[in-house]
Design a protein around this nucleic acid. Structure first.
Lengths: 192, 192
DNA sequence: TTAATGTTTGTTAATATTCACTAACATAGT
DNA sequence: ACTATGTTAGTGAATATTAACAAACATTAA
């Protein structure tokens, strides 16, 4: 979609880090410019407004939980394995860039701008729908129990993962997210 | 614990509503004073600082998901019934005061003040621990399957409920939270 | 009963600070 | 010469908070 310059990517990452460490109040043009190492007005050479920077953040978030991340490499794979891999991959990406994890499940950050709020809501909705569809497919193929609604199962899976990531962030990444994700999906496998 | 005057309660509720509707950026002394119908400095007759108001909010949140809310009325009750009732009650309370629901699972709101952040983290931790303990008790009594770790089960239950409430808030309370909570726990019952 | 006094809760006006953003100008590479 | 990217110095608006003062009310003393 949008192609960002190196400087823009740098600004987006700096913003992400600021939010992760100091909350949405920490995201000021002054702080961004300090982190990037240029003056405040120089930021405006790369983004028209602060809202534009936030849109850049959302675009980066989309990358990290967007459509493709649910498409399995191998169509013949077991449905449960697909789900497990999807979330393990996310955990891996969050571990690589913890700031994304801090922002991706904090919709509240965008609540004062309806454009941004709608965008983050869409990402959430889409990701959940993908999960529901995969589960349904698994149920049709007899790989997942069908006495539980796919919607409810998706709520549990996505909800549990979100909470795990939130706890990971709040603990200042003090445990191995990937490992805990695996443990979670081991437990889930016994259920579905 | 803390005893609030009527005016203080009014300020806390106004603040809660502001956050719920406009996000943390909407919470300004000016907006609070407008909502309460007094001048800005008058707010300082009732709270020493804005942080103090936020502490008041956290105190109110504690009421709504605190210790007692997990204590069962009837000790002889089925463990699963206790869990179901606990969360149904929470859903009821959120329906009565949707603004609390908007704030209670949005830790990001408090991220710029370590005192507040630690407080909300504690509430979260405590609530989760209570859930784990109840599950363990249920497992010991043979009412809940024991081939899944209590920690993982709690993660699923609390996580699913949190996500449900978040979706409810983001949809501007467009569905019946209590009903959906019941549906969720019907599904959970089939698993545990 | 009345006068004096203190407390509570409010007001208007002003404070310093921070915010996002702009104008004008500089420099280096194409 | 032009464009991209930077600078310094400033803008007005919004922020939390304080100072100084006033009305309403309760308590106490004459």
């Amino acid at each position: 979609m949008t192609n960002f310059t190196d400087r823009q990517k740098q600004i987006i990452q700096a913003s992400l880090d600021l939010i992760a460490n100091y909350g949405i109040h920490g995201l000021t043009i002054k702080n961004i410019s300090k982190k990037v190492g240029i003056s405040e007005p120089a930021i405006y050479r790369h983004f028209e407004s602060k809202t534009d920077i936030l849109l850049g953040i959302i675009s980066k978030i989309k990358e990290s939980s967007g459509m493709d991340s649910f498409v399995p490499a191998d169509e013949t794979k077991n449905t449960i394995a697909i789900i497990r891999e999807t979330f393990t991959n996310r955990a891996k990406r969050f571990t690589k860039n913890p700031s994304i994890a801090a922002v991706i499940f904090s919709e509240a950050i965008f609540e004062n701008n309806s454009q941004l709020y709608a965008a983050i809501g869409n990402i959430m909705e889409e990701s959940q729908m993908k999960c529901v569809n995969i589960i349904k497919k698994g149920q049709n193929e007899g790989q997942i129990v069908d006495y539980i609604d796919a919607e409810q199962l998706a709520l549990m899976i996505v909800g549990a993962f979100r909470l795990l990531v939130t706890k990971w962030h709040m603990s200042k990444n003090s445990f191995d997210l990937e490992e805990q994700t695996k443990i979670l999906f081991n437990a889930l496998e016994k259920i579905v």
